[in-house]
Structures are given as C-alpha cells and as structure tokens.
Amino acid sequence: MDLELFLQQLANAISLGSLYALLAIGYTMVYGILRLINFAHGDIFMFGTYMAFYMMTSFMLPWGAAFFIAIILTIAFGVLVEKAAYKPLRNSPRMSIMISAIGASFLIENLAIVVFGGRPKSLPVPDLFNRIIHIGNVSVVSITFITPIITMVALAVLMFIVNKTKTGMAMRAVSKDYEAARLMGIDVNFIITFTFAIGSALAAIGGIMWGLKYPSLLPLMGVMPGLKCFIAAVIGGIGDIRGAVIGGFILGLIEIMLIAVFPELTGYRDAFAFVLLIVILLVKPTGIMGKNIAEKV
C-alpha cells in the first residue's frame, strides 16, 4: 500500500468511523444512565432518516427545516417508545426490559415495512454535503468532514449537559441509584424521558448523516448499524460517552483496513466486527474507557 492509497483509505475510515461514533454516543448514553441496552436505537435511527426523507420529498421543505422537524419528530417517537415499551416495566427485572426492547425493535421494523413500504427510497442529498474535494489524488466528499465535526459537537454538548448542568447531575444520580435519587426529590420519570429524548435526537442526527452518505432507505436499514454501534460502544466501554466515540472510530478503521489489506476477506466484514466484540468481552469486558462497576441487578 503506497502513501496515497493509505491516505485515501484513512479518509474512508474516518468517514465511516465518525458515523459509527455518532450513533454509538446515543446508544451508550442511554445505557450509561439507565443500564438498559436500547435495542430499538437502530430503528429509531431508521425512523429519523425516513422522516427527513418525507419532509424533503412530500412536504418539499428546504433541507435545514426538514432535518430540524425530522429530529423533533424522532424525539417524540423515541419518547413514545419509552412510554409504551419501557415505562410499564420500570420496576421489573432488567431482563424483562431488555426483552421488551427487542420486541419494540421488531415491531417498529415490521410496522415500517407496512407503512413506508419495502422498496428502497432515496434521500435527496443537498449540494453542501455532496461536494467532491480533491486533495492531490485523494478524493473525499464534503460529508466526510461534516460528520466528524457534528460528532465532536454532539460529544461536547452531551458532556456539558451531563457534567455541568443540574439536569445532568440528576441524570448521573439516577444512573447510580434511582431509588435514592427519587428520595432526594429528583423526578426520575422526567429524567428518563429526557435521556431518551436526547438519545433519539442523536439517533435522528446519525440517521440523517447516514442517509446523506448512503442515500438508500430501507425499513431494516437500522439493524446492522445498530449492532455495529453496540459493538463500538462496547469497545469504548459501554456507558462512557467519550469511549463510544473512540470505539466508533476504531471499528470504522478496522473494517476499512481489513478490506484494504485483505480484499479476499471482504465477505467476513460483519463477522469480523462480531469477533471483535467477543474478543473485547473476553479480554477487557469494561472496554477501553470503562470503569469496573459492580453489577447492580
């Protein structure tokens, strides 16, 4: 591999990795606060992309407005999922909530097939995201630069909310022990809803960026990215927001470099991601940034 090809592949890796990172942040945040693996995250992501599509094609909105409304609608949808599938099980064992999450995920996928249709749709890509930039012989699309910036901004905003605001303090309290948090006068239900709202907003932003990069929308488009981001979150240490970003970039880099260096292994790309998950769970289950916390079931 010469330098030029390496730089091109590096650009490809950053482009893919930043998308994984953006999605993984939402995944890991919900886990960090609620100790719940939100399996429906990938489907909320799919919902966000479809909303952006309908806002741009059926309502003919300019892209800025379309994306904004899509994010708002996705937040509402995410909160609805939380109210319908998770809230009734608040005091049940964790396992029940996780199974409910899997059920919600399947339900959303199949409803999407009925409502949105099984044929792929194509998200119109605004010019700003589609400009091709040549640096020497390395070509990159402008979205390659935009996604990491959005990922970093999202990370910074989230770190600020969690660490510097009063709501963030309440979120951290809920994550430690929500019985005690409730006794301290924290409105636990509000905090959980708020957490889901942020998670869904991140899923929507991730979905829109994903749709702009790969403009083919399918009802099951959220499944693989959802699993990949789960892996990214585990690599980084699930529950740790900075870890999720690092995990996302690592996963993107490994996937691209695997294909670049061993083209004959391309068919095993997804399998490799899962092997990586198993290795991490065996060797360092807390991930790169994770702290060792006793399981509180």
Partner: peptide, 15 residues
C-alpha cells in the same frame, strides 16, 4: 467483493 446489504464500498473502490 462485497456482501448483499453492504452500504460502504469505499475501501474496495480505493483499491
């Protein structure tokens, strides 16, 4: 090569 359902082909294409 790529697999059905793949969305990112940048690595193969760069090669």
């Amino acid at each position: 090569n790529y697999s059905t359902g793949d969305q990112d082909f940048s690595a193969q294409l760069s090669n």
